[in-house]
Design a protein around this nucleic acid. Sequence first.
DNA 1: TTAGGGTTAG
Length: 666
Amino acid sequence: MAAPSATLTPVLIHLLRGASDLASVAATHAKLLKAGVAYTASSSNHLLAAYCRCGATGVARYLFDGMRGRDVVSWTTLMSGYAAAGRPSDALSLLRAMASSGVRPNAVTLSTAATGCARLADAGLGRQVHARAEVAGCARDAVVATAFVDMYGKAGAVEDARAVFDGMPAPARNVVSWGAMMSAYAQNALGNEAIHLFAELRTKFNNVSPNHFMLSSVLSACAGVARLGIGKCIHGAVFRLGYDGDDVVAVAVVDMYSKCGCYGHSRKVFDRIQRPSVIPYTSIIVAAAKYGLWRCAITLFNEMNDRGVQPNYVTLLGVMHACNHSGLVDTGLHLLRSMQSKYGIAPTPSHYTCAVDMLGRAGRLKEAFELANEAQVEGNDAAMMWNSLLSACRTHKRVDLATMAGQRMSEFNQDVAGGLVVMSNAFVSAGQTDNAAAVWSSMRRRGIRKDPGCSWIEVKDIPYVFYAGGISCAGARADEMLMLLDELEVKMRQKGYKGRLGSARVSDVEEDGGEGNEVMVGVHSEILALGFGLLVVPKGMTIRVMKNLRMCCDCHEAFKLISGIVEREFVVRDLNSLQIKDQLSEFQFGEHGKVDHHQHSHHHMKNSLSDDEEHGMNEDGTGSQTGKGKKGFAWHRMKWTDSMVKLLITAVSYTGEDPGADLGGW
DNA sequence: TTAGGGTTAG
């Protein structure tokens, strides 16, 4: 019998490397056994890797457990296999077992472990792995350090990510390291920092050329903070660098335009995608739904089905959202009831919340309560769902049910302040101002405060951020702005406007020292941003105002009136709380040093109750820290074209017509 | 020669 190992083994190993399915790996394994070389260290590691590559971690583990000479590659291979199979905990257990077996981890092992911690979003565990990398002397290895940048970013520890990035020797930072850092910012709602880093790379380190990963991350950053100007520049770079054919980049561009209020651009980019998968479809469907183009959203959904693209739960949520805002209540309900059987997707708490909101909006409160009770929803999702019902009760003036919804909500609610604001708004709508004021004074007594609302507007690529009652952001043009708002208020009154812009009362400011039942009201930040926009955005250009919370009904009305008076088109982007899991976020724009609300003094005025989230803003600037960067939003057009009016006639309601019906105006 | 880094949709 010829000695096989000298000639046969390389051939078999070559076969193993090319094998991607379990059957061919097993067949080659059998041949190695037959040749009697399956147990050499090298063959075993190849076999391990092959089994891991085709997802057979169970077989790999069995093989691993029977191996005699396990080296660092064996351990790392199995770890990597677990990580790839979505079992990061098992990967990290292996790291511990490896330590007790006396095999020392190397750079490859530790970067794999870091990726596992990233998947777990566990900064504590990640820090331990980081410490080991320091001990092993490989913490500054480009790949290892980049893995830590990503890990800290995914675990929400952006400052640690930046520290690792800064600790890397400049030549070691490559396109992946830069991209990972930008992504860390983008994923943590620090879009402006990501943009800033991108600019720094372009100006100081011209030898690193952006790739599709980096472009996607920066586009996502632009989307998150609605920086249309920069977003357009990046889109230009996408073309120049030849990434316009990349689907992932294209989705990021679609998303960026839709979040910057340019549905038309979004649609053009989407239409150029050759064979859109579920992700681009979902992106554009959600964009259409949020833009009030429900007919488009549903047409796209049907088109997607016709092309055999399977929707996922996000897609269905987007379609339900479109139904919700177009009054297609029964269509939406049917979708909820049939999604399991038709698409094999189980409804999530978000789907129930959307359906409950839909019924509540339509005034079908009994059904809404039944559905809410039927849905097995817990925690923050439940709070969100009951919250939306509470708002519906308020809209339909059903205080009896509101109390019940409020109680159910408080069982789950972590955002005590938000819940109480909605509660008090429900009382206001029902004319029970005494009860509403009691809620407010109770909040004050208990020291419960709400996050400050802010609005911003991008002028020549720079965001100008306004907080309620504060005009310092307008700089030298503040007085001019107030005069303009006063003039507008006069004209609005002639058209029957009964609310107040508030600008005239800025000088009447009183500090919040009052006792009793008065409630503080500030000048709403979106009005200030709009006033500034009217001064600085050239005539003929759409003014886009962004807000971190939900716009109130009064401001909505005011924007529409002003749009008619000045004959300009406005678009407002605000928060759609129904879509988010995280609590409201603060937006920070430290980059330009324009606003830092921690130093900003808020001015309050005494007034009667109204529908505004900004009453309860905190004077000391303590607010909740942001979670992940994904926020729900909705666009509201304030000037209607003829086709829009026609659409309205057929629609019961549409995005933004009555924001108060949604979540109590905050 | 077996093992390592990032991106898109609510």
